[in-house]
Each structure stands twice: as structure tokens, then as C-alpha cells.
Design a protein around this nucleic acid. Structure first.
Length: 720
DNA sequence: TCTATGGTGATTTTT
DNA sequence: TCACCATAGA
């Protein structure tokens, strides 16, 4: 390799360089927001290979998301070319999956085991509820699901000491049955991938020493997000001799509620011998003002490693705090500011961030009215969509008739007249014969326990699946095509009216394309059938999140999903006590600190302009409630904030309110936020005005009739 | 077996 | 408020 030390390091600052070139041994990189951490990991790998002559084959790099893994891989290929290909880069789940595929026998799995996602898991638990006749009033499937996942994330198998607590007893029984079903059906859930892989290495000294000898360098991104099992996994694989580079930011840990252990950073320092620490504090993203705000806010958290972001850049504009009189006013303000920004020719690369998804609606409505293109990030991913999962369930059942979850899912999809009653009959056979649903279905036909009509439906269903099984031998694309055609799914949606159904039909066609692309790139390195490989792929990589693909659209999303992104202009909306910090986080100091970190993440997404907004009144579950500004607003130093807005909006009517008062008080005596009554529509609240003089129109939210625009001259509005 | 109604409860989300 | 579900009628 001809890359010289110089070119590799020339664009890095001193701290980055010392992280990249840290000597053999363990390294903890505390990387602040926007400090170039991915860059550091990628360059460190390149440096190890080109300067230290470490074999690419001995390097393992772990990330949390497929997206991050993909980016890392791409950047490595840019730097290293073909040599990058033998580096193992992937997510914890992806790499565990790979190891389990390679060593399925030692792991005690069938060769064609399948990966199930959270939705499949929940379905299975619901089925167990029916099987074990669990009372759904006392036990919720969702709670049980998170119980199981929590246990696995902790690295614990459920079947320990039998608890005498009757509640626990039931939960344990469900857990046991769940494990049994997974085993019988050859299914592995997400948490299981990690746990099983950990156990595989733990219980197999030969395998373990092989991989320990192979991977001399392990690198982990977003270390603050690791949970217990991921830490153990890493620690086991590292053994005594590997060098581990952990990169993370304790201030950006926002997944504690999902089992991430921020303490893992301290633990790393303690348990991984002679750890060097490097802090990346120079920020290349935000203005000094924004960084000061972020620093001041996060200062209120205890037990931090401590880190102060700084920049060589300019101070930039002050942060604007806006208090709307209600959530619609807040949204209208956002729209107005965006309009101004767009008018001055700046791009629509704008992030509207909020604590919870429910907030998106009001914002969305105001963007629609203003005609500003927007896209909402969130919702289902491609492979999570119902119609796609239906089609894939056919594939799963064809490949593995033991897959009861899939059987149940598609038995009556599209509707073929086999409803709950018939399913119940089949389930009885399952219980009495201890067999799969598939076997039970065949038995039901033989023993003629069903009505003639349903029996014939069931017969053709069995014939359909059997017929598809012969297609298995050809190819993935052929099978998917046959499934979509022969199952009647595509026809079912095509025959329906409405955009929704047409969309679903299109999605099914898109699935064929996805399979086509996958098969074209597929190389059978671990003698895995392309069909099995594709099914795992669909579970492990949910595909792109759905959002309207408008060019030049402002982006609406939760702060959680904004992590890792940046925008020149950022709005953080709904900064109110009880919403952000969320009232669920009120009890514990720990939870509050995580909320504060979340706010820190939000603030540090902004490059140039930052707005913090809230509403003094908000509709919560249909009730107008008085709101207090979030403590996080108070934690931003006064001198960084646009004081004019703050004073005006907090203590006096807003500019807009003033205008309306000036203009209309003489004529109507109305002001924004005021309660009014209309002869036909009854009572409501004045939201906005438009135009002037005779053409003045007012926007009113009526209690009974919803939002309406009315011409002020004709509408006989009276103040209440 | 498919469609209407009522009770319930309501963060954040990747794999 | 409203979306999700479970249960009851056509």
C-alpha cells in the first residue's frame, strides 16, 4: 500500500490523529457530537492496515445500524480499495447472525433457521396466550415480549429458579413455551441472535480461540448504546490479547430505556486493561453559540466524563426561543420562519424535531396549508409492511412447514373463507397431536372435521403450498413471483378500489424487484440457499423507512431518529414540562438525565440556526391544557437566546398577536387565542388572521366543527 | 366470516 | 382526541 502516513493523517486534528495512531492496546475515544468520529474509526482501520501491517482479515468493526455499517464499509473501500473487502464490518446482530450461520451445528440450530422480527415475535406470543389459555386481562402480550427481550438483553435465560410469585410463574411459563416454539419452528429472534452467538463462543473453546486468534483488532462505534449482552459478547471475543477501540459519547446515550448501559463506558475503562483515553472535542458542525448552549445544558447532568465542545467557527446567530399561545400558533411560527429562510434562497435542508410522534400532526397540517414540501420520517419500513410480510410468510412456510407463525398469518390471507372457527379446530389438532399447524391442517382434511366448503378451501391451500414447494428448487425470484401470483395476494389488492390497495399491489411488485436485485448480487459463500439468505436479510434489514420522496422537503422526525444527522436549520418543538422532559421520566433522576441528553442530541443537530419552541396551551387527549416551558429552556444561558422574542413572546402578546389586536380590536375586539362564538358553528378559538380591511379572514377552531377559515366581514363572530 | 361499535390508554426504536 | 383492539351482530 502506497498511502503515506502524511496523506492519511493530513486532514485530521491533533486529537483525531492521536486516536487514529494510538498504539496497540485498548482505546476509549470520547467523541463529541460533530467531532468526526466515524472518520476516526475509518482512518484508524486504514492506518492499522497500511502502517502497522495488520491484516484486514484480523479486523472487526461493529456498529448499531445497518446504515452506519454501510457508510463505514463505503468509506473503507474509498480509502483501501479491494483490501477493505476482507474486513468484517457489520452490526452486532448482523455479525452474530453470520457466525451462527457458519456454525449452526455447534450453536444447536437447524441449518435453515430463520430470523424473526419484533412483530413476528409478538404474534407468536399472542398465539401462546391462546395455547396456554392465558388471561389477556392480566397479562399483556407486549409486556411479556419486552420482558423476554429484556432478559435476553441482560444475557439471562428465563428458565432459572422457579419463582413462587404466581404472576412470575405465568410469565415464566409463557417464556418457556416461547423458547420451545422457537426451537421447534427453527426461529431466532433479534435478542436471541446475540445471546446464542455469545453462548456459542462461550461453550466452544476451540471456536472461541480460533476467533480470538483471528481478530486482533476490534472497533466499536456508538459504544454508549451497548447493552449487557453486547458488552459480554465483545469482551469474550476480545479475550486477553485483542486491541479494542471503543468510540462513543456518554452525553449522547439516549437508548437506556432499551437496555443500553451508559455505565459500559466506565466498565470498559475498568475491565479492559490499560485503556488509553482520547477526547474529540473540536466540533466541525455548529456555531459557537449553539455549542455553548449544548455545553451549558449538558453540564446539568451528573457523573459525566466531562467534555467541552468547541469550534474555530463564528458565534453565529442567537438561539430563538418562541412561545406560541397554543400548538397551532407554534406550528404557524415554524412555517413563517421557514418561509423567510426559503425566500432568502437557502435550501430546504431543515429539521423539525420533536419528542414524540404525536406532535407531528399539527406541524404537518400547517405545512400542508402553507404548501411547503415536507416529509415525515417514521412509520413502517418496506419489509415491515403487512402485505410484504404476508408474501414473505408464504415463502417461509414453503421453506419450512414447521413455521406456525407464518402458517397462521396467511391461512386466511387473502380471505379464503377459513376463519377463526376453523383455525380453532386446527389448533385443537395441534394440541392433541403435538404437531405443526401444517400437519394439523392435513389431518383436518383427512379426518373430515370441517364443513365441506371449508375443507375444500383448506385443501386448495395445502395444494397451493405444496405446489410452491416444487418451485423452491428453481430460484428465489421464481419463488417470490409464484407466491405473489398463486397466493392470490396481488389479485386481491389489484381488485380493490382505492389508493391504499393499489399501493399495496405496487409494493408486492417492488418485492419482486428487491428479490431480483438480491439474487443478482448473491454469492453463496456459506452454502446458504439464496431463499433462506433473503429471508434473513429482510428481517435484519428492514429496508428504507417510508417517507414522501419529495425533493427539497423539510424533514419532520423525532429527536431519536435525528441522531447522527445534521441540518443548517433546526427547530425543536414542544419544549414543555411533561412533554420534553416527558412526564414518564419525571420520577427518576436517571430518566431525567436521559431526557436532557436527548435534548443535547437535538441541539447539536443544528449547524447555523436553532429554534426552541413551545406552546403555552396544548390540546392533550382532547383537552386544552396550560403548559409550562421546559426546564431545558431555562438551562440555556440567557445571553445566547434571542431575548426580544423571549420577552415579547413570554410576557407580552407576540408580534402577530399585537398586529391582530391593533388591527381588529377597534372593529371586532378579537385577539388570537380568544374564545369566540359563531351563530352556526358555536364556540371556538381564534387561531390566525389573514388579509386586511374588508378582506380579512379569520381562522377559528370550533369545538364542534373543527377548523374553519371565515371572512371576518360576513361571519358574525362575538367574543365569549 | 366480515363489518360496526365501544372500551382503553396514550414515549422514544434498532436489530 | 383518536387510534387500536376486542367483541358483538349481519
Amino acid at each position: 500500500m502506497e498511502t503515506s502516513d502524511n496523506t492519511l493523517l493530513s486532514f485530521l486534528n491533533t486529537a483525531q490523529q492521536s486516536a487514529v495512531t494510538a498504539a496497540k492496546g485498548n482505546l476509549l475515544v470520547l467523541a463529541g457530537a460533530g467531532s468526526g468520529k466515524t472518520r476516526v474509526i475509518v482512518h484508524r482501520i486504514a492506518w492499522l492496515i497500511t502502517e502497522q501491517h495488520v491484516s484486514p482479515y484480523s479486523i472487526l468493526a461493529v456498529t448499531f445500524t445497518n446504515k452506519a455499517a454501510g457508510e463505514m464499509r463505503a468509506r473503507l473501500e474509498e480509502l483501501l480499495g479491494r483490501e477493505a473487502q476482507s474486513i468484517w464490518v457489520g452490526t452486532f446482530h448482523g455479525l452474530s447472525h453470520k457466525l451462527l450461520r457458519l456454525h449452526w451445528q455447534e450453536a444447536g440450530l437447524p441449518q435453515n433457521f430463520q430470523v424473526i422480527d419484533g412483530d413476528d415475535q409478538l404474534q407468536m406470543i399472542k398465539r401462546i396466550f391462546k395455547q396456554l389459555e392465558v388471561n389477556e386481562d392480566r397479562f399483556e402480550p407486549k409486556k411479556i415480549q419486552s420482558y423476554i427481550n429484556r432478559k435476553k438483553d441482560e444475557g439471562l435465560r428465563g428458565i432459572r429458579a422457579i419463582d413462587e410469585n404466581p404472576y412470575e410463574k405465568v410469565v415464566q411459563a409463557i417464556y418457556q413455551q416461547y423458547e420451545k416454539n422457537c426451537k421447534e419452528n427453527g426461529l431466532v429472534d433479534f435478542a436471541e441472535l446475540l445471546l446464542r452467538c455469545y453462548e456459542l463462543l462461550k461453550n466452544n473453546s476451540e471456536l472461541l480461540s480460533h476467533y480470538q486468534a483471528r481478530f486482533s483488532h476490534l472497533l466499536v462505534d456508538e459504544f454508549q448504546d451497548t447493552n449487557a449482552i453486547q458488552y459480554q459478547w465483545l469482551s469474550l471475543l476480545a479475550g486477553k490479547s485483542a486491541s479494542v477501540t471503543a468510540v462513543g459519547d456518554d452525553d449522547q446515550s439516549i437508548y437506556g430505556w432499551r437496555g443500553a448501559k451508559i455505565e459500559n463506558i466506565r466498565r470498559f475503562e475498568r475491565e479492559f486493561k490499560e485503556t488509553q483515553m482520547v477526547r474529540l472535542e473540536q466540533n466541525y458542525r455548529s456555531t459557537a453559540t449553539i455549542l455553548s448552549a449544548a455545553n451549558a445544558l449538558i453540564e446539568n447532568n451528573g457523573g459525566r466524563f466531562g467534555k467541552n465542545l468547541w469550534t474555530e467557527g463564528e458565534a453565529g446567530d442567537p438561539i430563538t426561543v418562541y412561545a406560541g399561545f397554543n400548538e397551532e400558533d407554534e406550528a404557524l411560527y415554524v412555517v413563517r420562519e421557514i418561509r423567510e429562510w426559503l425566500k432568502s434562497g437557502k435550501g430546504a435542508d431543515i429539521g423539525i424535531l420533536y419528542r414524540s410522534n404525536a406532535q407531528s400532526r399539527v406541524l404537518e397540517e400547517s405545512f400542508v396549508r402553507a404548501g411547503i414540501p415536507y416529509s415525515i420520517y417514521g412509520g413502517l419500513r418496506f419489509f415491515e409492511r403487512a402485505e410484504i410480510k404476508d408474501a414473505l410468510a408464504y415463502v417461509r412456510l414453503v421453506v419450512n412447514t414447521e413455521d406456525n407463525t407464518s402458517f397462521e398469518r396467511i391461512l386466511n390471507v387473502p380471505p379464503r373463507g377459513i376463519g377463526d372457527r376453523s383455525l380453532e379446530k386446527i389448533r385443537e389438532i395441534v394440541v392433541s397431536n403435538q404437531c405443526s399447524y401444517w400437519e394439523a391442517a392435513k389431518k383436518a382434511i383427512e379426518t373430515q372435521v370441517l364443513s365441506a366448503k371449508i375443507e375444500s378451501s383448506l385443501r386448495s391451500f395445502v395444494a397451493l403450498i405444496s405446489g410452491l414447494q416444487t418451485t423452491t428448487k428453481t430460484s428465489l425470484v421464481d419463488l417470490i413471483q409464484a407466491v405473489i401470483r398463486d397466493s392470490g395476494l396481488l389479485r386481491f389488492f389489484k381488485e380493490q378500489e382505492g389508493e391504499k390497495a393499489q399501493n399495496r399491489a405496487e409494493n408486492l411488485e417492488e418485492l419482486m424487484n428487491a428479490a431480483n436485485d438480491y439474487e443478482a448480487e448473491y454469492s453463496s459463500e456459506d452454502e446458504l440457499s439464496p431463499i433462506t439468505a433473503f429471508l434473513s436479510y429482510t428481517s435484519l434489514e428492514g429496508g428504507e423507512r417510508v417517507h414522501a420522496s419529495t425533493e427539497n422537503a423539510v424533514q419532520l422526525m423525532t429527536i431519536h431518529s435525528a441522531k447522527g444527522l445534521e441540518f443548517p436549520m433546526v427547530f425543536i418543538c414542544g419544549l414543555e414540562d411533561g412533554l420534553f422532559p416527558h412526564h414518564f421520566s419525571r420520577e427518576s433522576e436517571q430518566a431525567l438525565e436521559e431526557e436532557r441528553r436527548l435534548c443535547y442530541v437535538g441541539i447539536t443537530r443544528a449547524k447555523r440556526k436553532l429554534y426552541l419552541t413551545y406552546a403555552e396551551k396544548r390540546r392533550i387527549f382532547g383537552r386544552d391544557e396550560e403548559r409550562q416551558p421546559s426546564r431545558f429552556i431555562e438551562e440555556v444561558p440567557e445571553h445566547l437566546v434571542n431575548a426580544i422574542h423571549r420577552k415579547v413572546t413570554v410576557q407580552a402578546p407576540t408580534m402577530m398577536q399585537k398586529r391582530v389586536i391593533d388591527r381588529s380590536e377597534n372593529e371586532t375586539g378579537l385577539r388570537l387565542g380568544q374564545r369566540v362564538v359563531h351563530p352556526k358553528f358555536g364556540e371556538g378559538m381564534l387561531l390566525d388572521t389573514e388579509g386586511s380591511g374588508e378582506r380579512t379572514r379569520v381562522h377559528v377552531r370550533f369545538d364542534q366543527y373543527g377548523n374553519k377559515w371565515l371572512a371576518l366581514a360576513y361571519a358574525k363572530l362575538e367574543p365569549v
